[in-house]
Design a protein around this nucleic acid. Structure first.
Length: 109
DNA sequence: AACATGACCATTA
DNA sequence: GTAATGGCCATGT
């Protein structure tokens, strides 16, 4: 069953603003985890009333992770496009433009 | 407790 | 650019 780890991850994912995406590694880092795999686990275990923008979480390649035995991967792309996130011809997202940058203290103003 | 699995990542060849 | 290897650690049996 779900435990504290999941809620930490979900809390981070909820922070991702609209029109932005975050990688699994980034979410894991913000959630205080050491491995990015657990992030995928947590999202897979989302409850029905999750209220979590899971579609804004992508892999480090800037692509949607092809999950096994589900059609939700295409849904993720639709949801992101609906928020303004653009994909190139290979189905890849330009992380330089759409990656969420949590108050990391931007260099200069 | 051990083993196998997993919506992953970084490094190396 | 691709392909293979090791590591990471929670979850279910």
């Amino acid at each position: 069953m779900a435990h504290r780890t999941y809620e930490m991850i979900w809390a981070v994912v909820r922070r991702i603003p609209r029109g932005r995406v975050a990688t699994y590694a980034l979410v894991a880092d913000l959630a205080g985890l050491r491995g990015a795999r657990q992030v995928g686990y947590a999202l897979h275990a989302l409850p029905d009333d999750h209220r979590v923008p899971w579609h804004r979480v992508i892999n480090a390649r800037g692509e949607i992770s092809p999950r096994a035995g589900s059609d939700h991967d295409e849904l993720q792309r639709v949801l992101l496009e609906h928020e303004g996130v653009e994909f190139d011809e290979r189905g890849r997202i330009a992380l330089e433009r759409f990656l969420w940058k949590p108050r990391k203290g931007r260099p200069r103003c």
